[in-house]
Amino acid sequence: MENPVIFTYSILYSSTDEFVDKIPYVSCILEQEDGFRFASLLEGFVEGMDIKIGQEVKYIGEDEQGKVRYSLE
């Protein structure tokens, strides 16, 4: 299957205790080819990076909690 694309996103500058160390980070909804959507925290964001709806993201594997992770690069 093709990589999912960004359906919508936000760059966060404030968050809960659990995620405050990651600020700024990108929350997004990703959409697969078949139209299935899911919530994701995108890796690889650096300040000033251009993000667009419809942009493809790259599968980078699972994190230590077993969550599937995608990156902007």
């Binding site: 359906f7 919508t8 996103y9 966060l12 968050s15 809960t16 929350s27 919530a39 994701s40 709806i53």
Partner: peptide
Amino acid sequence: EAKEGFTFPANFAMIANR
């Protein structure tokens, strides 16, 4: 959602961007 780092401002920010 929340355990993926989503907050309410984030949810409505995603709504705004869409």
